[in-house]
């Protein structure tokens, strides 16, 4: 494939870098405690927390680096860090 002229690139390629492999701890989302406030989605530095049909947060573990910011900021303690099992 030809290289992008002058080191340019079309969008979309970053997705190929699956940063989920960096993770040593993994956030587990407990929907029974969740109030769907959206804080976790807002504070995720990866922008990898989406929503399911019911409005509950769903992390994309392909990209979640396991930083724990969502756990720290969740006002309902509805997310817990668990050791990653690989």
């Amino acid at each position: 494939m030809a290289l992008g002229l002058g080191c340019s690139a079309k969008p979309g390629k970053a997705k190929e870098n699956r940063t989920g492999s960096w993770r040593t701890f993994r956030p587990e989302f407990m929907h029974e405690k969740c109030t769907k406030c959206g804080m976790c989605t807002q504070v995720c530095p990866e922008g990898c927390i989406g929503e399911d049909d019911l409005g509950f947060p769903v992390p994309d573990y392909d990209y979640c680096k396991g930083c724990g910011l969502c756990v720290e900021e969740c006002p309902s303690q509805a997310i817990e860090m668990k050791k990653e099992e690989k």
């Binding site: 992008g4 002058g6 080191c7 340019s8 690139a9 079309k10 969008p11």
Partner: peptide, 9 residues
């Protein structure tokens, strides 16, 4: 047609 220019190599 968004593109990125001047990436690092």
């Amino acid at each position: 047609d968004p593109m990125s220019f001047g990436l690092f190599a």
